[in-house]
Design a protein around this nucleic acid. Structure first.
Lengths: 151, 151
DNA sequence: GTCGGTAGTTGGTATTACAAACCATCTCAC
DNA sequence: GTGAGATGGTTTGTAATACCAACTACCGAC
């Protein structure tokens, strides 16, 4: 029988396993786990500093620093919002997008040995179970959002 | 159809979701994610500094610092190994064990809303799929280990 | 136009992490 | 046994991550 402990264990172990892979791959490109996430988020959108911070659960000042360093590396850019002079919008440079693509490919490759242990039907089930657990498929948010949520 | 991208996405999203919970709960007890892991590992065993570092993918010196701070807080202790004067064994104090227990309870509680979205049969399947993906059930290591692996 | 609130940055501190240099101890060759 | 090299940990120095508090700039309402 599966206990609450088993589930917690499996989730936590999986988390550290995947986080380890992400940390390793990130490190190969000189990116911390957090920077990796920032790149992932900004791949298909621009975002304001505070929204990024809120979404990542970080302080604004931490976000400032992360952006500073990534900007110094030429991975992303700060831009002004014409409607509100206070907000700073952050978006990727071509170099940043290219790096993000390379990292994504590496991550997929690094996870392949693990995911290859499942057949297509099992993969399907795993994805659907994880989506359910973390409420990707819930319809409770059917009310249109004012600002599109970050991922 | 489930693509490699879907799987990667689900795993990565799950990882950040769970890591977020762990970071939050840890923070409530003044523990970083890494310190949380150390406590988790040492709950039912003692370990040498280098083994901890290797297992966590950290440098020895990083491990030294982590142990220092946890020791200063009275959560764990350093002891000598009678067979080899070089090695330092690390193990929990009663206070550390107690804290670890509290944290574990909190984590279980924090994950409950998520895991409650699945019925017992689904939970069973999820755990078994995750165990397969990360090779918990593989029999390739049927040869007895010289030193018991850390988790 | 002033005032309270919001968006970001800056400065200060602790923690996390690595690398290099170091000390102590062990082991193996001789 | 003794010396050379390897191994286990700590120390020191540096960078990145993260928080908080204080600050600047701007918005909106009155």
């Amino acid at each position: 029988m599966t206990t609450a402990d088993d589930v917690m264990d499996a989730l936590v172990r999986t988390t550290f396993e995947v986080a380890g892979v992400l940390t390793r791959i990130g490190g190969e490109h000189d990116l911390s786990l957090t920077q990796l996430r920032v790149l992932g988020i900004l791949r298909d959108r621009r975002a304001r500093v505070t929204d990024l911070a809120t979404y990542l659960g970080l302080d604004k000042s931490t976000m400032s620093g992360l952006i500073d360093r990534a900007q110094r590396r030429g991975l992303l850019t700060r831009g002004k919002n014409p409607e509100d002079g206070r907000v700073v919008e952050v978006y990727m440079t071509p170099a940043g997008l290219e790096l993000a693509q390379r990292v994504e490919d590496d991550i997929r490759r690094a996870l392949a040995p693990a995911t290859d242990r499942l057949d297509p039907e099992q993969l399907d089930r795993l994805v659907s179970l994880l989506d359910t657990v973390f409420a990707r498929s819930s319809r409770t948010d059917a009310v249109p959002q004012v600002t599109r949520p970050l991922r």
